[in-house]
Design a protein around this nucleic acid. Structure first.
Lengths: 107, 107
DNA sequence: GAGCGTGGTTACCGATTGGATACCTTGGTG
DNA sequence: CACCAAGGTATCCAATCGGTAACCACGCTC
């Protein structure tokens, strides 16, 4: 999903406190995910950064962590879901203006 | 304008490559501005950071720098103006969810 | 009891970011 | 000439970010 040189790192937007937070949010769009499930789409993230990113999102109230007997899940809170709208607009911007951005950056 | 402890530094969004770029864009919303004019609303920015931020915005094609005889102005390009919509949505998000964000961060 | 999967933590290190401060060049102005 | 404003640069430093790699506790299975 985000494995190759992710275009999103070139975007002039950031959601959340660190580099990965936006991608984590997108991975949680469709429901709760386990720690190990998140590591699949975010193949290039280190466990340290994933933890750090999740802790930041939890601290800000965007993600809720729930520990069951033998598993832990992360899911978006209402507040976290409210970030998806701006996030999607940023993605829409990217689609519309990607070429212009690349052109500008090359010169 | 952004002089006190600017709430925007606490926001979970960033526009542009560095911390200040979003604020610079907002200062250019209403037309061209000179370097020294930008330093007024952005009272806490150092000249180095203002230059760096403007150079980044210029490189990405969001801002155009024009040097006249005895003055330099910066103004938004069309591409730069296209960032204002997402930016405004982020500000709207902030107004709607500011309290929740603070609450979450306190605990 | 050896090894495995889950969900992490810790230590270390280099690169990047951001801030403060001082300085510089060019062209006016008194 | 001295000084000033504009539009920056240069230098130094501290803090933060992000990455690698190793380790760890728990419960399960073979």
């Amino acid at each position: 999903m985000f494995e190759e040189i992710c275009p999103s790192t070139l975007l002039p937007f950031r959601v959340g406190t660190d580099k990965w937070a936006g991608m984590v949010l997108r991975c949680l769009e469709d429901g709760p995910r386990r720690y190990s499930e998140l590591r699949v789409p975010l193949a290039r993230i280190s466990p340290k950064m994933l933890t750090q990113s999740l802790r930041g999102l939890e601290r800000d109230g965007f993600v809720q962590r729930t520990a069951y007997e033998r598993r832990v899940t992360y899911e978006l809170t209402d507040l976290g879901r409210s970030l998806l709208e701006p996030l999607r607009l940023m993605c829409a911007w990217a689609e519309d203006h990607w070429d212009e951005l690349l052109d500008a950056r090359e010169s």
